[in-house]
Design a protein around this nucleic acid. Structure first.
Lengths: 324, 324
DNA sequence: TCGAACTGCGGGATCGATCCCGCAACGGCT
DNA sequence: AGCCGTTGCGGGATCGATCCCGCAGTTCGA
């Protein structure tokens, strides 16, 4: 600021001229602005944040073992874009609760995660993407996507394609999305008066484990004519198991996935999947948090519409995914 | 700090007691530390950074369209861990060069990327993961992984398995890794006295496009007995194309990938791949940058060893069938 | 015995920006 | 002419931590 003062006015006047506050004559304001622009003046964010009592950053926390999934990377990138628009930085949190940030986004908070608990207990505003399930301090806002509706659409689609015995491949990690998908599956089965069949795969199961487990499942229950896989990649294990048993995915075994990804699109056959827009969700979560930090009123829950379902050959064979 | 001064000493003494600098009696130091701990005193990082003239953050920049690949997310997470150990924050950069950071990590800098150029021109130290190819301002240090050696191992493996006509599926984005893999392929072909056959897939090609392109390739060159895919997921497109043409991957068509991922492990058959450790590489890149920021001397290039190659069924099938 | 050196501690400046408040000049109104 | 309100601008404090430097008090050697 001393630099701009070299233009003949005091720091106060220069600050007012650049910041728009205070009473400055138009002539002085323009002159100061011109000189500042010419000298390439950039206000020091650190000093600004010190004065304002903020840090100028929001942090994002992703459960450690989940970060490898593309969903979370895209989510983080969307949040970074939204932050930048508000001159905030997005800090990637790695396990430690010592977040030097004004607020925190918690993605898919896993039940029992101590870091999430500590972040919530730290007093700073926390926005959750998907519901936080534990008791104790709660997020100030939650962004919820209607995955349930999409899962129901997937199941209905399987039914329409003739499936009458649908097994669900669930996961062992306990968080809101997992419960939601399972609940939808259970009530869907109840409505159709078919017995639910949920099989939990251990977290981080490798391909051959999934393949073997699914093969055992299909051998034990030969009447299963469709498998709904939850975790990313698992559907490929189902394809492998079907291959082992001489069944043909898309014909005598339908497969769908609750997560879309490059792998689902590139698989043979390509896998019908729920295709959530992680970037948009990340943007929304960040915007909600920034609104809170700016003192704007936000609803406790932001509902996002049902993500689209993409039909592919694993449920409707011999039909190109997209026109050539 | 006023809080600790409420313990009977001046801010100076308190600061010295907590920070270890200055001359303080052991008794005073212990007393101040006890009171600070009891009151839960946490120094304000913003004020500290203002005084020190730093920001306390390093930024990471990933080419926009590449962020969806798990490699980069894991890389960023590794960098975040290393940063935290040095009490630095890791800021995710989204396209804008306005990085409020003390230094920047640039991952796989793409030739011609304006953001990378601006970051380099901004005067702050930049560490590149893989070489920066453009003229002009250069990174102060580069972290290089010996992908070339691993690619050679992949090609040698194909040769050992009997492949004599290996096609390379390259990508259109121009960065160091792409050039390295192509160069290794070319010189490998030269040594073996076989004509190189490089096919470039457009960036972000969807599954069906890759499938169609590879099908056309295999139809035009029926003698191709192995395909080395570079981009993540592309190998699955090769599997699909082979399926279309009635060829059996692992038997009369070998397939490998220069990127390992969940999709490669879960594919049927599983794909032989180069398996780089992104988390470690990210850690190393961050550490090099932090060393530079701390004024420590670092070599201009940090060489990381050859990443491992994982052999899977796409080149060594479990059940021997018709040999090549 | 007196100066020098050293110890323990505090005053005030500093980093860079913001902002409250006060001062001078000027114009309008009675 | 005197008073008050408005305009334009600057002084100094402030955010929280660090650090140079100086001031007492003590010890020790000459």
């Amino acid at each position: 600021m001393d630099i701009a003062r070299a233009a003949g006015v005091s720091r106060t006047t220069a600050s007012a001229a650049l910041g728009g506050s205070g009473r400055v004559s138009a002539a002085t304001r323009d002159r100061v602005q011109a000189i500042a622009a010419q000298m390439g003046y950039v206000p020091n964010p650190t000093a600004r944040h010190l004065k304002a009592g903020r840090t100028g950053a929001i942090a994002i926390y992703v459960p450690n073992n989940l970060f490898g999934y593309p969903f979370y990377a895209e989510f983080a990138f969307g949040a970074a874009e939204a932050s930048r628009e508000d001159a905030f930085a997005l800090t990637l949190l790695s396990s430690g609760p010592v977040a030097h940030a004004d607020g925190i986004i918690v993605v898919d908070p896993v039940s029992g995660d101590r870091v999430v608990h500590e972040l919530l207990a730290s007093g700073r505003p926390v926005v959750a993407a998907e519901r936080y399930l534990d008791p104790g301090p709660q997020p100030v806002a939650t962004v919820q996507t209607e995955y349930g509706d999409a899962q129901r659409e997937l199941l209905d689609h399987l039914w329409d394609r003739g499936a009458r015995s649908v097994a669900l491949l669930s996961i062992s990690v306990d968080f809101s999305w997992k419960r939601l998908i399972e609940d939808v599956y259970r009530s869907w089965c109840e409505e159709r008066e078919i017995p639910p069949s949920i099989h939990v795969l251990e977290r981080g199961s490798e391909a051959d484990v999934v393949r073997r487990d699914v093969r055992a499942l299909l051998e034990a229950h030969p009447n299963v004519d469709a498998v709904a896989a939850m975790a990313d990649g698992t559907a490929l294990g189902v394809v492998a198991a079907a291959h082992d048993l001489g069944r043909t995915v898309g014909h005598d075994l339908l497969v769908c996935s609750s997560i879309d990804s490059l792998a689902m699109r590139f698989a043979t056959p390509a896998i019908t999947a729920m295709s959530a827009p992680p970037r948009e969700i990340g943007r929304d979560a960040a915007r909600v948090l920034l609104d809170i930090l700016h003192g704007r009123e936000v609803p406790p829950v932001l509902h996002r519409p049902k993500p689209p379902v993409v039909i592919r050959e694993s449920t409707v064979p011999h039909q190109p995914a997209t026109p050539l």
